[in-house]
Simulated assay, not measured.
Amino acid sequence: MASYHTRWVRPEPQAEDPERIMIREALAFGKALYDRREELGLTVAELAERSGLTVDDIECIEEGGTAPTIALLRRLAAALNADVRLTSGHDVGSVWFEPHAA
Rank of each mutant, 00 (worst) to 15 (best):
G41A: 06
T66W: 02
G64H: 03
A71G: 11
L33M: 11
R50P: 02
A78T: 08
S94E: 05
T69I: 07
A48R: 06
A15S: 15
V55M: 06
R36H: 02
P11V: 05
T43E: 07
L80G: 00
E46I: 00
L47Q: 02
D35L: 08
R85K: 11
D83P: 01
T43G: 09
I21T: 15
E38C: 11
R10D: 10
T66H: 05
I61V: 12
A78C: 06
L80T: 00
R74S: 07
P99H: 09
E98V: 07
T43C: 05
E49M: 10
R85A: 15
F97I: 03
R24D: 13
D35Q: 10
T6M: 12
E62I: 04
E19W: 08
D35C: 06
R20L: 15
E38N: 13
I23V: 14
I23C: 05
R74W: 04
T54P: 01
E12F: 07
A15G: 08
T54A: 05
E38T: 09
E39W: 12
E19T: 08
P11S: 08
P11K: 10
E19P: 00
R24C: 08
R36W: 01
T6Q: 13
A82M: 06
L42K: 04
G64Q: 07
E62T: 05
V84N: 04
T69V: 05
E63G: 13
S88K: 10
H5D: 15
L76T: 01
V84S: 08
P11E: 08
F29I: 01
S94T: 13
E12N: 07
R7Q: 14
L27G: 02
W96L: 11
G89C: 05
E19V: 11
E46A: 09
P18V: 07
A101M: 08
S88Q: 11
W96Y: 10
S94W: 01
A67W: 01
T87P: 04
E39G: 05
G93D: 08
R20F: 12
L72N: 02
R20I: 14
E98F: 03
A77F: 04
I58V: 15
E25G: 04
D56C: 04
P68K: 04
T69P: 02
R36Q: 00
G64N: 07
A48T: 06
A45E: 14
G52S: 09
L47N: 02
V92Y: 03
P18C: 10
A15T: 09
D91M: 06
A82Y: 07
A101E: 14
S51K: 00
